[in-house]
Design a protein around this nucleic acid. Structure first.
Length: 687
DNA sequence: GGCCCTCGAGTTCA
DNA sequence: CTCGAGGGCC
């Protein structure tokens, strides 16, 4: 401990000292409470606390939010603070067999326009079954640890992470000013078993598997409990970095190791599908002997420059994939088949199962997808069925065991009417899904739409989850989405209701108020227009920028064509949008919402590029770039990519074999360039 | 007209 | 996570 007398500290030194003290005290506190051997003596610990107090007394304006003096007796905050990830935390696509892996590499080659002879190095590493975490170091000091959450926003678990021995509190040596190190927190199998024995001895409930034990341990509000749980860590990725001191994934792993982070010893560099598969097989063989659970092997393109070119698809990178081990299977009895009604009226069958443990989790429901699926598999109520957890998560019925079929078991008769509102349920030509035609008279549809409206990717109103919104609808408090924003006015209706105290009502109301201003893309997604999901909603917002513009287009003559000019929107989606905005009930809902809300126009990113705001059309074949890559480049530069040439088109990039689009561009006098020129013009602005 | 890639809409359990 | 279907290229 620095022992400069408090009175001699400059403000800057004091601030730094407080930061360090906050860290140290939290750490030692956890050690003290959680382990038999505290790292320092009680006297030394007291000295830290006293010094912290003294500095705070002298510089009250420097008291930190995470000051230990505030935390004493104040750990009751029921949740962890939210943390925005500066760089999204990824999820991965999956491969389930060798064919998928071959296809993964073929896709990469296609995208990069690399032929068979070009070697693309990849890293293969075990996929640890734990929890992803992001550790932020500033000037070498661990300042924040956040869970993955939904990938863009996680929870602050810094205090708990500080109790994990394997995670360095400081990075020594010449490291970038900002380093976000990412990896997996896990609990070893042996520690898990021991923990469960302890839990049982203390008459507490046991954890289902090491992953849950690790998750439960990390999400403790009291870091001392986390400290008592033997959590471990493997580093394998990074987020926000002020500089990248490596150019390949393999180099990154070495760098991480040199900084003192545990990295997985089974990671291996590969040059072909065959290499990848042999690593996979090896890991599969040693899997049982590893001291931690893994659920597959991750393959990543090694070269970061190539990763950068490959970019992302929705939430997953094109340059990585998880090759999953075969799912664990189990046999149980099909007790019944429930029919659920979704927000679009889709009737979905759900299998009710005799509870059974699969992959460490008790499963009692499984999806049956649709009518045809039940017929194809010929599963009947009363059958013994084989089930598995697909990708180790979602339970699914694989097949019935015919030899065990009870006598008289009848094929399942799919309902032709909605089980909720009784309206007819029909299958459109060529569609697999049977839908309730009740529309807004169907309670199930109304409730599901409301749930969608408040869901995380739409309005995301904290404290107003699907259960609450369903209850509010049941009570007649919320009929249509806009009613949510009028709850404040009727707060009396909530008074005295079970589970709603003054404080929780206040919290709910302020959470609702927070969403009274909403981004256009979230708003559009929340409306639940058929075929308009998160991505299409963003594309629409990007293309038209305001709700008014979208409504005008949709209601105008030829609106569907105008909409389908947007890349990614075709006739079916365009017509769904047009239909939505013509339907009087929907218009009423939208107008009602508009009177309650401030809808923020979409701000197209300022990239400073000359292509910003332009509409580009690629036509003909491209020789150096793949179309997908060209498109992602254009978008990176803030341009829109359209599929057809119109008066709004700013530039056409034409390759050999261009036909009608090129002709039209010439007619309209739109500038046309070739691929070479495109590459030249974009060269400086892409990194 | 067929194929590939993406997206939407459905799903479970802790 | 999976499936089906829409969009767009070839």
């Amino acid at each position: 401990m620095d022992d400069t007398p408090v009175k001699d500290l400059t403000e800057k030194e004091a601030a730094r000292a407080l930061a360090q003290l906050a860290m140290d005290i939290t750490f030692h506190n956890a050690r003290y409470h959680g382990e038999d051997d505290p790292a320092i003596s009680d006297a030394a610990f007291d000295a830290l606390v006293r010094r912290n107090e003294a500095i705070e007394t002298r510089f009250p304006h420097l008291i930190r939010k995470d000051s230990p003096s505030r935390q004493v007796g104040a750990k009751a905050s029921s949740k962890f603070a939210k943390v925005q990830h500066r760089v999204r935390m990824l999820s991965l696509g999956n491969a389930f067999n060798e064919e998928d892996v071959t296809e993964f590499l073929a896709r990469i080659r296609r995208f990069l326009k690399a032929d068979e002879d070009t070697q693309i190095a990849l890293m293969a590493e075990p996929k640890i079954d734990g929890l992803s975490i992001s550790l932020r170091y500033e000037d070498g000091a661990l300042v924040q640890a956040a869970t993955r959450g939904d990938g863009s926003e996680g929870e602050d678990v810094t205090a708990n992470i500080r109790t994990i021995e394997e995670i360095p509190q400081t990075l020594v040596g010449d490291v970038p000013a900002v380093c976000e190190i990412r990896g997996e927190i896990y609990m070893s199998k042996a520690d898990f078993t021991a923990l469960n024995e302890r839990q049982i001895a203390e008459e507490k409930s046991a954890f289902a598997n090491p992953r849950n034990a690790a998750a439960g341990s990390l999400r403790q509000l009291d870091p001392s409990i986390t400290a008592s749980r033997p959590l471990k860590f493997f580093a394998y990725a990074w987020g926000d970095m002020s500089a990248l001191p490596f150019a390949a994934h393999s180099e990154a792993l070495e760098w991480l190791e040199n900084l003192g982070f545990p990295t997985n010893p089974l990671s291996k560099r590969c040059n072909s599908v065959a290499d990848l598969l042999s690593v996979y097989k090896h890991i599969e063989i040693v899997r049982g002997e590893l001291e931690y659970d893994i659920d597959g092997v991750v393959y990543k393109v090694d070269d970061l420059a190539l990763q950068d070119r490959l970019g992302f698809v929705a939430k997953a990178p094109r340059w990585a994939i998880a090759h999953k081990f075969p799912a664990e299977k189990a046999i149980t009895v099909l007790l019944g088949i429930d029919i659920q009604v979704g927000r679009t009226g889709a009737l979905t069958p759900v299998a009710k199962l005799e509870p059974v443990t699969v992959g460490g989790v008790v499963v009692s429901n499984a999806t049956l997808h649709n009518e045809d699926e039940i017929a194809r598999k010929d599963v009947r109520i009363g059958d013994h069925v084989r089930i598995q957890r697909a990708g180790d998560v979602i339970p699914q019925v694989i097949e019935p065991l015919l030899e065990k079929r009870p006598k008289g078991a009848q094929p399942f008769e799919y309902p032709t009417h909605c089980p909720v509102c009784g309206s007819e349920a029909v299958r459109e030509d060529g569609e697999v899904v049977r839908r309730c035609t009740g529309g807004l008279i169907c309670n199930a549809q109304v409730v599901e739409r409301l749930k969608h409206f408040v869901s995380r990717r739409a309005f995301d109103i904290e404290g107003l989850g699907s259960k609450h919104i369903a209850a509010f609808h049941e009570d007649g408090l919320v009929q249509s989405p806009a009613d949510i924003f009028r709850i404040k006015v009727q707060r009396g209706a909530l008074d005295g209701k079970e589970g709603w105290g003054d404080q929780s009502i206040d919290n709910l109301i302020s959470a609702i108020e927070e969403r009274r201003t909403i981004a256009l893309d979230r708003f559009l997604f929340g409306l639940g227009i058929r075929h308009v999901g998160e991505v299409t909603a963003r594309d629409l917002a990007k293309a038209f920028e305001t709700l008014g513009a979208i409504e005008d287009i949709a209601r105008s003559e030829g609106g569907a064509e105008a909409l389908s000019d947007v890349d990614g929107i075709g006739t079916v989606v365009a017509e769904a949008i047009v239909a939505f905005f013509h339907e009087p009930q929907n218009r009423a809902v939208v107008d009602d919402l508009r009177s309650e809300l401030t809808i923020e126009p979409y701000k197209n990113e300022q990239t400073g590029s000359t292509f910003e705001g332009q509409t580009l059309v690629f036509t003909g074949s491209l020789e150096q770039l793949s179309r997908a890559e060209a498109k992602s480049q254009a978008e990176k530069l803030g341009a829109k990519v359209s599929g057809s040439v119109s008066s709004k088109t700013s530039l056409v990039i034409a390759g050999p074999g261009a036909g009608s689009k090129l002709k039209k561009a010439e007619e309209l006098g739109v500038e046309v360039i070739d691929e070479e020129e495109w590459i030249r013009r974009t060269a400086g602005s892409l990194n």
